[in-house]
Simulated scan of single mutants.
Amino acid sequence: MKGVVGASAIAGIGSTGAAAVNTATPPTGSGGGITPFMGIERIDGPAPRGMPIIPVEIDDEGVISGRWPEVKEETVQGQTEYLAEEEIGGITYTSQWFQYCGKQTSPALLPRADQDNRFLSSEETQYEWQSELEADEPLNIEHFDDYEDWGNEIGEDGAGKPAAATWRSDGLEGGDVLNAIVMRSPRIEEAAQEDEFLEAATQDGVFAYLNVCTHFCCVPGFKVSDTAERFEDGNVIYCQCHASVYDPFTILEQSFLSFPQPDDVQLPEEGGGGGGEEEGGDGGGGH
């Protein structure tokens, strides 16, 4: 079994595709720039790096949510800007982890956006077991009770039980929606006992990641394609668009050049997308 690695050496910044950047000319604007992040490992194909982890928490009723970094206020050259950033398990967790593939324009990533942090079951799931759930039903740890045995004839049974979800996307549509995979895995449960970051960012073997391929921004899948069995033991994330492959059970520190949030991104309207402290941008979209 391949081990899970946390807080390892910074990986190289990517090279090809839509995620390619010129590291000599970092972007200007609110947020953006060289961004260390914790993500699953890219093990094959053209993707330049892994996909970012979303730290999770589970409430007393078993509802699974993604943690949003603590919002901080800064004054830069007389202008107020907002930062979503905090330390988790010895790692600096920031909203910039998710600012790629156009997601930097989503109101969901504005630091002060008062969005629903629960993971909601996606109606666009490819997992048959999720058909028993209502669309937008909050995912609960009870939905993963059979995680040690679950399988769908792709890869080995018991590696992990996945669910497709949306996160912080109430009232949003199209490219503004944040799609995620939530999974419960014995491998993560075991690894978290010896890793400070995983202990803090996962719970009872439950972890999540933003499901947006870092190559050309497609939506890859875990246990949704027989083609994945050509790689490792089939228990990999495979992007059918351009054959990028990721290992969801190896989580390590990487880096990339995140894009800044445009200054005209507005907080979701109150009542439509969870509301915000105020409508409109304030010139500092935050980091």
Rank of each mutant, 00 (worst) to 15 (best):
E128P: 00
P268S: 13
A9P: 00
G32D: 13
Q203T: 08
W129N: 07
E190L: 11
G39D: 12
G151C: 00
L178V: 07
G89R: 09
A165G: 14
L133P: 01
G160T: 01
E229W: 01
L172M: 14
E132C: 00
L252F: 07
G29N: 03
A135S: 13
S258F: 07
G271N: 01
G31E: 06
Y100G: 07
T94V: 10
L210Q: 02
G275N: 07
Y100Q: 09
V212S: 13
G274M: 05
F259C: 10
H242V: 04
F216C: 05
G273K: 13
N211P: 08
W150K: 03
E41P: 06
D264H: 09
S30V: 06
A7S: 14
I43E: 00
A159N: 06
V182W: 07
C241S: 14
G174H: 11
D114T: 12
E279Y: 15
W150A: 01
E81W: 13
A24C: 10
P36N: 08
Q240N: 05
E189K: 12
E148W: 01
G50A: 09
C213T: 08
V236I: 05
L139A: 10
G14C: 04
D170I: 15
T94A: 10
L172A: 12
S95A: 15
T202F: 08
P46R: 09
L198Q: 13
E189L: 10
F98M: 13
T35E: 13
E194L: 12
F98D: 07
P260R: 06
D114A: 15
Q96K: 15
G89E: 03
K72M: 10
I34A: 08
I141H: 00
P268T: 01
D170W: 07
A135C: 02
I54P: 09
E277T: 07
A163P: 07
I54N: 06
A47R: 08
F207D: 04
S225R: 03
E253C: 08
H242P: 02
C239I: 00
F37E: 05
I54E: 04
V219N: 12
G102T: 10
P69F: 03
A164T: 04
S185A: 01
N179K: 15
W129M: 08
V236K: 04
E196Y: 10
A135P: 09
E232L: 09
L198G: 11
Q130Y: 03
A191H: 11
W97Y: 15
G286D: 11
E128T: 08
D59R: 06
G78W: 03
D116E: 11
C217P: 00
P260L: 00
G62R: 07
E153N: 03
E269C: 12
V265W: 06
R230T: 06
A201L: 05
D60G: 10
A84F: 09
Q130T: 10
E81Y: 14
Q79H: 15
A201T: 04
A164G: 06
D226G: 01
G271V: 00
T202S: 15
E41I: 12
L83H: 11
S258I: 03
I40S: 11
C217W: 01
P111T: 05
L178Y: 00
G275K: 08
C241T: 03
I58W: 01
Q130F: 10
G45A: 05
Q254I: 01
L110G: 14
Q193E: 15
K103H: 12
W68D: 01
E270G: 13
N235M: 02
G174V: 09
E153K: 00
N152F: 07
F256P: 00
Q77C: 02
N140C: 13
